[in-house]
Design a protein around this nucleic acid. Sequence first.
DNA 1: ACTTTGTGAAACCGAACGGTTGCATATACA
DNA 2: TGTATATGCAACCGTTCGGTTTCACAAAGT
Lengths: 112, 112
Amino acid sequence: MRRDIFQAIADPTRRAIIALIAVQAMTPNAIADQFHSSRQAVSKHLRILTECELVSQKQQGREIYYQLQINKMKEIDKWLEQFRKIWESRFDNLDKYLALLQKNKAHGKGSK
Amino acid sequence: MRRDIFQAIADPTRRAIIALIAVQAMTPNAIADQFHSSRQAVSKHLRILTECELVSQKQQGREIYYQLQINKMKEIDKWLEQFRKIWESRFDNLDKYLALLQKNKAHGKGSK
DNA sequence: ACTTTGTGAAACCGAACGGTTGCATATACA
DNA sequence: TGTATATGCAACCGTTCGGTTTCACAAAGT
């Protein structure tokens, strides 16, 4: 039973749930109404999201409001950081440089 | 057979492969040597990564170099954008504001 | 031509996934 | 107290996942 944030966001329904409760906390029934999923299916998704601490519960009478723990989302951002470095350097510098070389070559200025 | 980028990065081995070939293109055998995975297992991962266009192949003799298509990684970044907005506004403003309120309250300046 | 090397693909297997069905529990309302 | 509502949980089911084993094929070396 793998249960990390990357596995949690792998499912499209769970991504939709995350986006939904990011705006405001909602109950399982209210969430299920938004999709073509049953209440139980949503409940299972919420269980998974809770297990990896992406959402938290807030009991209110007999209703339970689920809230996104937005801080947890930063873990994805953190992982992405290493690649952001690459695409910022590689595409803004190296790639343009290569394009420039290619252009010069085509104009007969390639061999210094 | 779902095959989107979020499903692709769900597996920890695939994330490791992605990080590995982000630095430089590598052959399946070279990649497999870095892990405790068999060559065939790596091959299957590369297949999945190729299917969702996260990596591309570059034949060189009988060797095939796999290269990360870093542009595709931006899709994750793009999806994350909606949440980045939230955590930047919510935590940099509201949270600091609440912390300030708390601080003032502790000092006896809470009620106006 | 034969062998070695690098690779992909198919068949299979146990485990996990996503969903449904049915039941249990707790709160609200009459 | 009885009933409706809101929810979680366990059992089951078909599908997918990640891995191994085996085979096929093409390029390189002898």
